[in-house]
């Protein structure tokens, strides 16, 4: 009787071990199939993009496509810098000082996707909208308003326009993105906290 009991537990032990090892294998085998479906290496590599900014004049605005997402480039003039500087950051829904939004006061780089529901806001060089007597961005979809630092001033958007890693290369070129940085979904609030761009 005792011998038989041992036999049974031995088979159970073997069954359990084998099943466990088999299950681990099936789990591991699923990994390549899952990773197969995430962005391929060429798409990852395309996360670093160089833009020529030497032709951009004072006050000029440009949209470039990076990772299939619009990126705003704005060469800020004196009026833009001054009007934005007058805003008290602590009064904002998503508080941020100018230093936390841009690397160089005369240049804004951010993702041009409205943080409400994803439209692309329009650049307004004179005034954002009636009652907002400063330049900035106006979102036509539900009336979101942002200043020239991409900070949310009014309307339904919950956050400032999202930032993207970038670096200036000898003043003529701008390098946007890193291989790892996904873009809009990341939402890092301060420019200082963004991953470093290799130059």
């Amino acid at each position: 009787m005792e011998k038989k009991g041992k036999e049974v537990s031995r088979r159970d032990f073997l069954t359990v071990t084998t099943s466990a090892v088999g299950a681990v294998g099936i789990g591991a085998a699923a990994i390549p199939f899952i990773k197969f479906m995430s962005p391929s290496k060429d798409i990852i590599r395309a996360g670093v993009m160089d833009v020529d900014i030497s032709g951009l004049k004072e006050g000029e605005f440009k949209i470039v496509m990076w990772r299939k997402q619009p990126v705003f480039l704005l060469k800020r003039d004196k009026r833009m810098i001054e009007t934005a500087a007058r805003i008290d950051p602590s009064k904002l829904k998503d508080p941020a000082s100018p230093e936390e939004r841009v690397k160089r006061p005369d240049f804004l780089v951010c993702i041009g996707i409205c943080t409400h529901l994803g439209c692309i806001p329009h650049f307004q060089p004179e005034k954002i909208a009636p009652g907002f007597d400063l330049p900035g961005f106006y979102c036509p979809c539900h009336g979101g308003k942002y200043d020239t630092l991409g900070r949310r001033l009014d309307g339904p958007p919950p956050e400032n326009l999202h930032l993207v890693p970038y670096e200036f290369i000898d003043g003529k070129k701008l390098r946007i993105g890193t291989p790892e940085f996904a873009g809009f979904t990341e939402n890092i609030r301060k420019i200082q906290d963004l991953p470093k761009v290799k130059v």
Partner: peptide, 17 residues
């Protein structure tokens, strides 16, 4: 390496059965 272990285990289990 994993396949060798798995095969050995399954073989032993089959013998037992």
């Amino acid at each position: 390496a994993y396949m060798v272990v798995l095969t050995a285990l399954l073989y032993a289990l089959n013998r037992k059965v």
